[in-house]
Design a protein around this nucleic acid. Structure first.
Lengths: 343, 343
DNA sequence: GCAACTTTGGCAACCGATTGCCTTTGTTTC
DNA sequence: GAAACAAAGGCAATCGGTTGCCAAAGTTGC
């Protein structure tokens, strides 16, 4: 258990060369003779030598590791994001470590602080940190945002504007005259953006927008959200995300409200459970895996860039990427009931 | 971006003391005077000093970090495990990093190798690595297994034996005379253990056991599994896990087979989607979060133990923990149909 | 055959912490 | 007031790599 690992010094002795030669045999192959290099490599293999990344990082400042901080790892929405990010990181020979913030800014901060010196950069997915914290962090470290935008940080997010327009058109074409938005946590930038877009576009689609909440977006909290929304006597409901939407549908079923006959329910993210539930859930999804890949790519670009060079300074594209979304029509949305059912 | 961080030398200069004093002010408070310590702490705070964990690890050999390698991070079964492990790790002031093995032994090995020198130990959840690899790893590092057992490594797993007995009793009491097991991936120890337990106990419950597969346990693969099982004209079906079971139910519904009227379907793990699907899924669940906590605890014990001291040597309890499971009865299981429906 | 150059390998400083050992200073004891 | 001891802080070695610089050896050109 936890036996002493061989070092370059062990390898050097075995190969009959100096430690520096061993180091170069790995990192600067052109700086050593071909024969010597082979001997070193052979000795290393025999001994089972594995370089110590931290001793190296101490000198070079590079860890070849990037951290992905997820606001809630239990949310399936992040699966594909993680998978995409992992693939891209591996292709660049970087390790991706994933840490969970459990929807708490405090925990998120702690997790980040704990990794500050261990990783080359951070990808923050749906960060709940205040803007100022984010800017402060970004002034000292490489940071890429996912599901959030904040100038001048590079970010990858779904195109909320066009996505919400699709939702509004969907509602309008089905004859709805209003809808209720069940809000997510106050710290969610995405949540705020969704509501802003829905509210802003409502009027031109002839819709009235209402909001209830905030709710922590879990299936369990759907009950409260459903009750809150029912009181408003609405015909259409948009939930902060699919998890909350699913919880809402369960509660509606329990209360004898039919979906979509009495009320239409929409979610965001298109998680895999959206098509497992009964009725299946209409939801606005996007290319999550692609978002993960792009986030890693942005971060790798940042790492390559000279220090202190802020992207977007010189009129070059500001690396604020918006990905197209698509409304996946399923069974939970349909023509407006009228008049709205009494609670 | 990635600006130079202050070191103990900066803090030392600022506080007017030697670097060693700064180090002790943090790590050995009793070795410095109260006044000096305050000055150092103040200077550190002003400068925003954060200790470099790797420079420290270089000297001490401890990283205060543990790695959790998950065979498939997209499987909701691991949510609670991760959450429990995280909580326990945090309580002990350790960072938990999560890495994904994507159901591949090769990737799992690579991920582990990449972290060998960066963490104090590994928790391998549902490892797909061969026994020999695991033993070799454990001879050089601290390793705790989850959802797998292999002497003499410490492990945490659900009690398959008693769990499967519950399933068999359930089937027998509902009048089933046989059942089909839809197997998971060949590398899954848990899968093998489940089948072994089901098969071993079948006879004494008057049941015939059959097996089809293997299948990669995802919802998408449920189609193939359902077709495979249907051919055998069975009345009861046990899937490797809930994901596969859900996929199976979808396919059965598409083919017009009624659950549970025509066929009962059971899963393992009790993931959150199990009660979202229609019909809701009967499944064998366990205390996942608790398993996560225990795994971290075992690992922390290992780290404290003197090197080379193998647990279980001296007759002390061998740290092979089995957690009680419980069969969660839902709608997907019911009395046997007879005769079995033609395919 | 010698100067100039290139290739190859070694020496030693360095990254940022920790820690054994020593020195200085202060306190206690008789 | 001197001896004995404890407390507090500093010096320097160390962990495992990387890298600038130098020296030795081998090449090339004339």
């Amino acid at each position: 258990m936890a036996v002493q690992q061989p070092t370059i010094y062990d390898v050097a002795r075995r190969a009959g060369v100096a430690p520096s030669t061993v180091s170069r045999a790995f990192g600067r192959p052109e700086r050593v003779g071909a024969r010597t290099r082979e001997q070193v490599l052979a000795a290393a293999k025999e001994l089972g030598y594995v370089p110590n990344p931290h001793a190296r990082a101490l000198q070079t400042g590079r860890h070849r590791t990037i951290a992905m901080v997820i606001s809630d790892i239990a949310n399936p929405h992040f699966f594909e994001l993680i998978r995409g990010a992992e693939q891209r990181a591996k292709a660049a020979e970087n390790t991706l470590v994933i840490v969970n913030a459990e929807e708490s800014p405090t925990i998120e901060r702690d997790q980040i602080n704990g990794l500050l010196r261990s990783v080359d950069g951070f990808i923050l997915a749906a960060s709940r940190l205040p803007d100022d914290d984010l800017r402060a962090l970004a002034s000292k470290h490489h940071v890429v945002l996912v599901d959030r935008e904040l100038a001048p940080l590079p970010s990858v997010a779904m195109d909320t504007g066009s996505g919400c327009r699709q939702i509004l058109e969907h509602f309008a074409s089905l004859g709805h005259e209003e809808f209720t938005y069940c809000a997510g946590p106050p710290g969610s930038w995405m949540g705020a953006a969704r509501w802003a877009a829905l509210k802003a576009g409502a009027e031109e689609h002839g819709l009235r927008a209402r909001r209830v909440g905030p709710y922590t977006p879990t299936v369990a909290n759907g009950g409260a959200a459903a009750d809150g929304a029912l009181r408003s006597g609405t015909t259409a409901l948009v939930a902060h995300n699919d998890l909350l939407a699913i919880g809402i549908m369960r509660r509606l079923a329990d209360r004898g409200v039919r979906v979509p006959a009495d009320i239409s329910v929409l979610g965001f993210d298109d998680i895999f459970a959206a098509e497992l539930v009964q009725p299946t859930l209409t939801t606005l999804g996007g290319p999550d895996a692609h978002a993960g890949r792009l986030a890693v790519e942005l971060l790798l670009d940042l790492l390559k860039a000279p220090h202190g060079h802020h992207v977007g300074d010189d009129g070059e594209s500001p690396h604020r990427i918006r990905l197209p979304t698509s409304l996946v029509l399923r069974e939970s949305s349909g023509p407006a009931a009228r008049p709205a059912p009494a609670p």
